[in-house]
Design a protein around this nucleic acid. Sequence first.
DNA 1: TACACTAATTATAACGATTACAATGTAAGA
DNA 2: TCTTACATTGTAATCGTTATAATTAGTGTA
Lengths: 147, 147
Amino acid sequence: MSEVQLKDALDALKSTGVRITPQRHAILEYMIHSTAHPTADDIYRALEKTFPNMSVATVYNNLRVFRKAGLVKELTYGDSSSRFDFVTHDHYHMICSDCGKIVDFHYPGLDEVEHLASHVTGFQVDYHRLELYGTCKDCVEKPAKAQ
Amino acid sequence: MSEVQLKDALDALKSTGVRITPQRHAILEYMIHSTAHPTADDIYRALEKTFPNMSVATVYNNLRVFRKAGLVKELTYGDSSSRFDFVTHDHYHMICSDCGKIVDFHYPGLDEVEHLASHVTGFQVDYHRLELYGTCKDCVEKPAKAQ
DNA sequence: TACACTAATTATAACGATTACAATGTAAGA
DNA sequence: TCTTACATTGTAATCGTTATAATTAGTGTA
């Protein structure tokens, strides 16, 4: 099933005139199979065995290409570095304030909020982001560390 | 009324053993009167007339102090730099993707979402953040610029 | 298959936001 | 007033990300 996602993603890229390079293929494949919302550096380090000469810039460049193509979302949740998420269907994020772990969860849309906001602010609303913060099971059991 | 907010904030700081310096007073005052969700640099530049010798580090240090005291929230919405928001009562943010303008709006809580998420993910949920993205009136009328 | 054209990759330097550090200054209680 | 711990300052360092220029390699076409 992730094979289908990969094929769809590659087709989507081709149709917009983006070349399929081995690096792009590998980054996409990694993102589809990863559930960990990796940082650019995570991706870089995971692929350096396969592509010893790959540059960090290539990872960033391609993540931007994928973002513009709507294939991945960039998550800026307060950590120093962005995390990237392969777009499947709409979902929200539950984030552990302690260890940074991000877990997906689903909830029926918040269209009503968008309508109200548009009415009140006069903005043309495109989309929204909802993130929940808390502590995961693992971290609840660990002793608290200094902030 | 913002006088009251300032006094409350100063009292809150004092009660936790934080010293009230002229710089802290000025930064708090600026944040309370500002509706623009300023960046650290905004604050720095706004106060350099009054405090010609103030360091950028002071602004960052104190924003962290205020954040730990629960007086301000740090917003990381994908721009290169964080924006800071004086905490009044709960509200959400409508963000212009074009010019970065942030407008507050209110909506009855999303407690139901928190409960569901806690049930599904096993997290202990502390709070949530909701941001809406779109285009403000001003930018709708301007010609689009390249991304 | 070979060619040519253009985009992609690489390596590295630059950038900008934020933080660390050490020296100096100062708020606030005794 | 004195003292002491905390704040501020100035600067250097750090780290994520982007820009640049040279080299390499997809991909459509002959």
